[in-house]
Write a protein that binds this DNA or RNA. Structure first.
Length: 469
RNA sequence: GUGGCCAUAGCACAAUGGUUAGUGCACAGGUCUGUGGCACCUGUGAUAUGGGUUCAAUUCCCAUUGGCCACCCCA
């Protein structure tokens, strides 16, 4: 097939280039290693802590989220992808994972499994929000839910799991912890807060006056300096916890102390979703010292945005129609995790790198090479090739770019002799070996390399056979 | 949802109200007819879209689309 035939310019390009929908993102092969890295670690950790993977649908009945996340939350009020399906039912793309997991727990009668039921998920979610770095309209979250147990040790263990996930990936993070108490004590606290702020309303920023009406707890983490001053002396939720919540929280902290997981008591931590009760926590990235404001002004230190968050939701199962069942969960954002990994130039191990490259020359050799590729692949080698290329040179270039250890060269001469060339790409030394013995010869050489690699500590991450969402 | 900054090849960046819009990397081919990394040469490839001002717009104006930043909120 003559390769001279340049692709003819076919139809005229459409005037309007079709581009990504706002807030959407393509993940290209180069970035895939980060996703693999995270997924591998998640799968490992989930297994170690006894979580089973659950896959829930992208689409659910709208009511599920209205009832769980809360109808007055921003997420439900203005960020959901909601539409009518062809049957006229109102459906929504899932904006988060917990609601679906709880729905599944109830629907599949998981109450009759050994409690607590520990479930783990990973997948895309959707929120129609204004995009920013690390914030997409389709974004990926992983989550761990423990349903059916109220003991504080569970809270501590889940925080430990979350913390260890990041620590294991060499990401410096801090664990922020708080308790927002039972719904009753929260209502009580709310009253106290409103009371406190009422008299000081004039010193508040405009947003905060809104918050006073809508979501008083948010007053506490306003960034306006004047508001922060007021927040200093505002009543603390800790002081308004009911006895049970308080006792629970103290025990959670004791457990955390015991396992020596560092945490920050953050009395201003409130979570936005309605279903939270009691313990709440977030994982924050530590400020990145590596990114200092450059003289050129090209600073890219993203604002404090949580890598993930979670908490107890002891009333949610009941809210969604199940038996009263305590539960707790954590959810983390994958894109944000990747941003941190990249910013901190954290090594995630080498990506896929082929060990062998098959170069061929001539029609007969090409046929033989095609077969050889298959044999070597089935023998377990990572093999690369460029069979469509004619010249040896471009093939060697590619072998070099891919960083393969050896090139196996088969041309007319080798075809005649029943041999093949093995070229060491680093030294340039090449040897002629019997074609029949190629597998053994290659294995012999690569095993030698394997030892060297181990010394360097550069063992390629084993590509687990986990599912990619 | 609010406010601001921005948009030139695959990527990173130049330039200009007036002939063929440059450079580096990448990609393709060649110098090298069976051998990669280096060098040199050649080539492919772009002014996001729509409208307006103007003799003339990639440049100025408006809108749309998209990106980024700060809010809001959240993963």
């Amino acid at each position: 097939m003559p390769k001279e035939e340049a692709p003819k310019k076919t139809a005229e390009r459409p005037k309007k280039q079709i581009q990504l929908l706002r807030g959407m993102k393509d993940v290209l092969p180069e970035e895939q290693q980060y996703w693999d890295f995270i997924q591998d670690r998640l799968a490992t950790i989930a297994q170690a802590y006894g979580f089973g993977l659950i896959k829930t649908p992208l689409i659910e009945e709208t009511g599920l989220f209205v009832r769980s996340v809360g109808k007055d939350t921003d997420i439900v009020e203005k960020e959901m992808y909601t539409f009518q399906d062809k049957g006229g039912e109102s459906v929504s793309l899932a904006p988060e994972g917990t609601a679906s997991v709880v729905r599944a727990y109830i629907e599949h009668g998981m109450l009759s499994r050994p409690q607590p039921v520990k479930l783990f998920y990973i997948g895309p979610f959707f929120r129609y929000d204004r995009p920013q770095a690390g914030r997409y309209r389709q974004f990926y979250q992983f989550g761990f839910e423990v349903i059916g147990e109220r003991h504080p040790v569970i809270d501590a263990q889940l925080m430990m799991l979350a913390y260890n996930f990041y620590a294991g990936a060499k990401l410096p993070v801090s664990l922020q912890v708080n308790s927002i108490g039972s719904p009753e004590s929260r209502a009580d606290y709310r009253k106290a807060l409103i009371e406190y702020y009422k008299s000081r309303k004039n010193s508040l920023c405009e947003d905060c006056r809104q918050r006073l009406q809508k979501n008083p707890m948010r007053l506490l983490d306003c960034k306006v300096p004047d508001c922060q001053v007021l927040a200093q002396d505002a009543p603390q939720i800790i002081d308004h916890l009911d006895e049970e919540s308080n006792k629970h929280f103290v025990q959670v902290l004791e457990h955390l102390d015991e396992v020596e997981i560092p945490y920050v008591l953050n009395s201003r931590l409130v979570r936005g979703l309605d279903y939270y009760t009691g313990t709440v926590f977030e994982i924050w990235p530590e400020p990145n010292a590596a990114i200092a404001p450059g003289t050129d002004g090209s600073v890219k230190q993203s604002a404090q945005s949580a890598l993930g968050g979670g908490g107890r939701y002891d009333t949610l199962v009941e809210t969604l129609g199940g038996q009263p069942t305590p539960a707790i969960g954590y959810a983390g954002g994958i894109e944000r995790c990747i941003i941190e990994l990249k910013d901190r130039a954290i090594s995630i191990g080498a990506g896929y790198r082929p060990e062998l490259f098959i170069a061929q020359l001539g029609a007969l050799a090409r046929k033989k090479a095609l077969k050889l590729f298959e044999d070597l692949r089935q023998a377990g080698f990572k093999v690369a090739e460029s069979f469509a290329k004619d010249g040896l040179k471009p093939q060697m270039e590619l072998a070099n770019k891919l960083g393969t250890k050896y090139a196996l060269i088969i041309g007319q001469k080798e075809m005649m002799d029943g041999t093949i060339l093995i070229r060491d790409m680093e030294s340039g030394i090449q040897e002629t070996v019997d074609f029949q013995k190629i597998t053994a010869e290659v294995r012999k050489r690569l095993e030698k390399y394997g030892v060297v690699e181990k010394r360097d500590g550069k063992i390629p991450t084993p590509s687990a056979d986990q599912a990619h969402p």
